[in-house]
Design a protein around this nucleic acid. Structure first.
Lengths: 346, 346
DNA sequence: GTGAAAGCGCTAACAG
DNA sequence: CTGTTAGCGCTTTCAC
């Protein structure tokens, strides 16, 4: 079945149009300098034969692949429990599609995978890489640097080390956290607690910093470490209630954590937001809308993050390829703004 | 920056090992017939030079790409709101990685995208395709058939048309639905309602069929159409409460729908499960665990689905390539079992 | 068993 | 402007 009919080559098209391969190549690649009557003949031949260029042959000579790798390093599987991942991919995909680039997805789980990925990248199959979910001391950046591949990171990488040139796209975690806490303050709350995320991720650290920016001399007992999961949120909330029964607000590092906290508050008979106001982070749907009460939270534009990462990378590739002078300078990181979404919990 | 050091070629390795390119090629590709002393020399040279084969050059001659496309057609963006997608990808990724294949991700949104994807597939960049989320009358299968690419579908495709040879992997939606309803029956419920999913997807149709298998002559008013969303669930639940105030159980086509139904039930003062028992479908975390009360639901092994799809496809490719006789026959579809997960809602 | 040579399909100088 | 001519890096007969 599925008998593989040999696809037509440039040669075939050239023969049919009565021109040389070079001419067909020119037309196909949109390079000007082919007179209309000829060009038209070629286009018809292409159409009639259903010709599609062989990417392998093309890459072999151009050293371009029009493909970029998206690497998601998530040993903890957490990413897969939430819809983030899909959103970012969508943003990336849209941007790449627009520029006729392919998306090669590389998912890693353990150390072995990192070696494999490093090998793959070193193999020069892709023109660049987009990297996600780095945790502290992840070996991946090192491998990528070594492969010498243009790269853009999703989320601020931790290792400040690097040769200065790290480009990343991130949400304004710190600013968003500040907004959340100020909102709580504006509601007249004063005993505001914070349940952090997993502190081996910069997003968690940045949100904590934002909290501290506003609550300069907060009671240290009002900060307890969570891990971005509902279970972590529950545990932390109990701890908080135990330590500081008088708290009147909670800023959770993400919506999942907030959902856990909400449950514990209800269990303890605290009314939300009357007794305790709660603010989350992410605006992760459908979680944020499904909680009881619906969650006030800080929204980040995930899809836009993805799109921007791709755009930055492609721009860099163009510069590199065109060698058109260093016009435009090296690309730099981007921090996307967040928005406070008011629902019922605060 | 990032000065592109030309990577070593087969030629270089051959020179270094003092053998011919052909010999290096043999060693690299694990083809036997190279004597140990030589093979070892070659391996060392490869190691020292950090040689990695150029895939483009290889594909050019082998016509193999060791890459498969994963196509997610989801005009409605629904997929992106849930964690399914990521899970399936993970399963696929694992399997492909094991067999040294790359995953090229193609996301489509509208008609234009379909054309683009069709073109890409026809371009012979990948060896096969894995296709998801088909809705009725989706033009994609047609395009893929035309491209003559080995394909495995995720979820039972609707169009029974096709040349008989459609291979797909799906959960036992119908059987799972039967289990759910029987469970409700076992609880002593008799006025069991069903909120369907979007009926332009086979999974929704199959679940409805399962419901009917058990509730052979159910009151037709007990079935109302939903759309797999929480909002749809809310609307449907209100409708049901209005039509049949005496219902004592609800089987929702998925967890999101169930979450919406739960909210409306609470709003109407119906206690769950005491007054009305509720069962969902998917075991979509963290939704199912977060609802109030936690949801009894039918779990499907999403990741396994992905893994299986990839396995089926790769097997097919091997057969096709090896041309080793038609041993093993054409691959056939697989239906994965589901499991009822008991929590508090029923 | 190992090497030599012939392309795979395409682009990019270079002529004309 | 258009055609001719080299390869890109690799696998694969085919001799030795």
């Amino acid at each position: 079945m599925t008998e593989t009919v040999p696809r037509p080559t440039l040669e075939a098209v050239a023969a049919r149009a009565g021109v040389s391969r070079a001419t067909v190549s020119r037309v196909v690649n949109g390079s000007d300098g082919v007179r209309e009557p000829l060009a038209e003949r070629v286009r018809r031949a292409v159409e009639e034969l259903g010709y599609v260029p062989n990417q392998a042959a093309r890459s072999l000579v151009t050293k371009r692949h029009d493909a970029i790798a998206v690497i998601v390093a998530e040993p903890e599987t957490r990413v897969f429990a939430d819809p983030f991942f899909a959103r970012q991919l969508r943003g990336i995909s849209k941007e790449l599609t627009t520029h006729d680039n392919q998306l090669v997805l590389l998912l890693t789980e353990d150390r072995d995978d990192h070696v494999r990925v490093g090998h793959y990248l070193a193999g020069g199959h892709v023109d660049g890489a987009l990297v996600f979910s780095l945790h502290i001391d992840d070996p991946l950046p090192e491998l990528i640097q070594r492969a010498g591949l243009p790269t853009v990171f999703g989320g601020r990488p931790d290792w400040s080390g690097g040769r200065g040139g790290v480009v990343y796209v991130d949400s304004d975690n710190r600013g968003g956290a500040r907004d959340a806490v100020r909102h709580l303050l504006g509601l007249g709350r004063s005993r505001i607690a914070h349940i952090t995320g997993a502190l081996d991720q910069t997003s968690a650290v940045d949100r904590l910093d934002g909290f501290r920016d506003v609550m300069v001399d907060a009671d240290p007992r009002l900060v307890v470490e969570g891990d971005f999961t509902p279970a972590g949120g529950e545990w932390a909330m109990r701890e908080l209630l135990d330590r500081c029964p008088d708290l009147d607000a909670v800023f959770a590092a993400n919506d999942l954590t907030a959902a856990g906290a909400l449950r514990v508050l209800r269990e303890h008979g605290r009314r939300v937001p009357d007794d305790v106001a709660v603010v989350g982070f992410d605006d992760m749907l459908p979680i944020a809308e499904q909680t009881e009460p619906p969650l006030t939270t800080v929204r980040q534009d995930i899809e836009e993050m993805g799109r921007l990462m791709a755009r930055l990378l492609l721009r860099d590739l163009d510069r590199t390829t065109a060698a058109d002078e260093n016009v435009g300078g090296t690309p730099s990181s981007v921090i996307l703004p967040t928005t406070l979404i008011r629902r019922a919990s605060a």
